[in-house]
Amino acid sequence: MKIMVDIKKRLWSGRRVFRLEVAFASDKDFVVLFGPSGVGKSLTLQTIAGLTTPDEGRIVVGERTLFDSSRKIRVPARHRNVGYVFQDYALFPHLTVAQNVSFGLKQGWPWYLPRGERLRLDEALEIFELTPLKYSLPRDLSGGQRQRVALARALIRRPSLLLLDEPFSSLDALLRVKMRQELLKLKERFTIPVILITHDPQDVAALAETVVVYEHGRVSKIISPPKHDYPVRERPSLSSWAANLCA
């Protein structure tokens, strides 16, 4: 899917100002925003989701213009149909796994899901292996389980784009490798384009179809990795081109 982002935003913290001026476009289905902390990657994701408004610019996802300052278009976050998985997952602590996952579905009252929606919930719980945990609260889950809940909650609405903010940063190395494979499987299963933030070159090597490299609020380069024919799980753990990104 075609994704086009061209935005400017100034943020003040005290007397210091942070300038975000980024532009990138991709028609690939897996875009990775890569760079150290504090360069504006999360801010970019928030503007795509509609949680922050850029000062000026344009955001287009597929055929849909989500934001265009010159045409005064600003689709509110709730109508953007963009799935967002937050860095710390932002699960609702007062709701069970099932209630978290079904949060974005049409709700009856109170806590009553219409029949069709209940089937979707059961299906999602099954896919993400959460059925045995459906009555647990987020505080009783492990990091990997929380992430599955966050993914299920975002994907159950069949969004047109999935945004992931450092999804693997709180997982241990072993789980990270597994979750990367899971994520690629999910992307195929839901046929959904993904934008992912990371500062881990391993993620870039394993996942990226387009890499957008960030530096001080700007895009320093946009790279498409060399074409490879072998399946993802056999890709080298850290390709030399990805390692070069850190240089």
Binding site: A49, A77, V82, Y84, A90, P93, F103, G104, R157
Partner: peptide
């Protein structure tokens, strides 16, 4: 946490 409110917004809530 403001992030929880934001999460709810991306999930389609007014």
């Amino acid at each position: 946490n403001l992030e929880l409110e934001n999460a709810a917004r991306t999930l389609g809530l007014s």
